[in-house]
Amino acid sequence: MGGRPRPRFRSVWVFHVDASACNGCDIEVLDVLTPFYDVERFGVKLVPTPRQADALLVSGSVNRQAVIGLKRVYEAMPPKPRIVAAVGACAIAGGIFYDSLAVYGGVDKIIPVHIYIPGCPPRPEAILFGLGQLLGLVNKKIEAKILYPRRHVLDRRYGVLFNERLYKDLRYYLTRYVGYYDRDYILDDLLEIINSSRTVEELREKIMDKASRLKDPRLREVYSIAGGYIVEKIKGETGTVQGKHRVQV
């Protein structure tokens, strides 16, 4: 039983405060109470009044109206544990509204906070992880990283047909066809093909071969369009070799 730390609290009753949030975090807090993420199995219960609460779940960047209520809720809590959890980016440091005049930017500027749960909004799992830490079920996993890397960047090795301008244009076009997520996987694959081929004909053959072997018609279409685009662009230039390619400044 060395792995899991011992629970600090038996059952924590929480009161949820919406300190001028956009309701994104509040909906995720409600999600935590659903049967999928059932937080009540740890004894955590949502209570309707701060007088019964051991902990506060505060969401939202605290604005001038909300600060009055937040202070009153904090004073109404029983004095003993008075745990405060800041849920979401706004409650931690103001989020996207951090430099607004109407906003205090962070719960910790008003009342002391015991646990910060980042996310915009945080996933229900992230809130569970935060509450688990509060109860002593799990340990924190993140810590500050300050890096001092080497002086020079490594030269990435590209093949003779690689052209940086073309790569960036291709990235833009693929975004329009397949969206952000699939784009990078296709782009990595295409880059590998471009780097491994030495002539334009070889490149065209390789891409068309790859496209014909795919089962997904959407991907097949994208590969053939991208292949045609690459071949057309590379052929249009005077020097296909990177060394001969000239940039106008």
Binding site: A93, Y116, R123, K140
Partner: peptide, 28 residues
Amino acid sequence: PEGAIVLTNIFEMATPSKDDLIYEVNLE
């Protein structure tokens, strides 16, 4: 422009201290 930013799927970031939420790269 360099493809240096990596989006991970790590969400377990809850921490009792704000100082843990910092990632810094220092370049000469």
